[in-house]
């Protein structure tokens, strides 16, 4: 077994760290090879396609907003049409889930900090 931090219960196979270092070096060297640049025209093509679709989505959204504007031209009208929102922001929900707090504390209302 490889030498490890004092008192750690985790062991590693013999020579593991040398082997990992070698693998990392090899991967970095592969990345440096100019061969990867051969993919550049393909990459540019892919980026053009992505730009086209983003542009198209932008046009569709703009047209929709323009139509909505036509349908409802006053602020009061827009306000009346607005549905009340009860959604929880994604980041807050993620935080609760990460903490396991959603079921333990929030839904069961058992906050005891």
């Amino acid at each position: 077994m490889e030498d490890m931090p004092t008192s750690s219960p985790f062991n590693v196979p013999d020579g593991f760290f040398d082997d990992q270092r070698l693998r990392i070096r090899q991967r970095l060297e592969e990345n440096d090879k100019p061969a990867s640049r051969l993919n550049q025209p393909q990459r540019r093509l892919w980026m053009r396609a992505a730009a086209f679709w983003i542009g198209l989505i932008g046009v569709v959204v703009s047209v929709q907003q323009w139509s909505a504007h036509n349908a409802c031209q006053t602020y009061l009208c827009l306000l009346e049409q607005q549905e009340p929102s009860f959604t929880v922001p994604d980041d807050m929900l993620e935080e609760w889930l990460d903490d396991g707090a959603l079921f333990d504390d929030i839904l069961l209302d058992d906050v005891s900090i």
């Binding site: 490890m4 931090p5 985790f10 990992q20």
Partner: peptide
């Protein structure tokens, strides 16, 4: 190298997972 590997190992427990993640 070792601190990152053992950090991952404490979180992921499994050696192979810690190897992949630390790499």
């Amino acid at each position: 190298q070792k601190p990152i590997y053992f950090y991952m190992r404490k979180l992921l427990v499994n050696h192979q997972d810690a190897d992949d993640a630390s790499q």
